[in-house]
Each structure stands twice: as C-alpha cells, then as structure tokens.
C-alpha cells in the first residue's frame, strides 16, 4: 500500500487544489481508488489539525477502567 501511495503524482505543493471540488464519489469502486490518491494533500491538512506537543498529549490521555 505504501508503494502505491508513493506513486501518486500529486505533491505536497499542490495544496491550492485542496479546496477544489473533487470528482463525484459515485460508485464504491471509484471511491476506493480515490482513497489512494492525494495522501500528501491529506497529510498536510492533518498536520494543521493535530494537537500540538504530541508526546505530552498522548501521555496525558489516561483513562480509568471500563467494560
């Protein structure tokens, strides 16, 4: 899977296209192939929403037991 993602032609530099309407997500088959595209674009967006200071944030997430 990683190799396929690497093959995508888009680079992180084309983020201006991020807001452009994407191809209509019609058939499930088509959706599946969409899912392997634009990974770099996606990661750029996610960079912007990830909480800051990952290490501290993850360490502080401590839960009490549940079922």
């Amino acid at each position: 899977m990683a190799a396929q993602e690497q093959q995508q032609p888009q680079s992180r530099d084309v983020e201006t296209e991020a807001d452009a309407p994407e191809a209509p997500p019609a058939a499930p088959e088509a959706q599946a192939s969409v899912a392997t595209q634009g990974v770099d674009d996606l990661l750029d967006e996610i960079d912007g929403v990830l909480e800051s200071n990952a290490e501290e944030f993850v360490r502080a997430f401590v839960q009490k037991g549940g079922q």
Binding site: Q4, P28, Q31, A32, S33, A35, T36, V39, L43, I46
Partner: peptide, 16 residues
C-alpha cells in the same frame, strides 16, 4: 487490502 481502506476502518487508519 489497500483498496478496502475507504471502508474497513483499520485499513483506513493504517493508510494514514
């Protein structure tokens, strides 16, 4: 399996 990343949750997360 990679083509199931739009439906199967663990594959979606793993792709990220």
């Amino acid at each position: 399996p990679a083509s199931a990343a739009s439906s199967v949750e663990w594959l979606a997360k793993m792709s990220l």
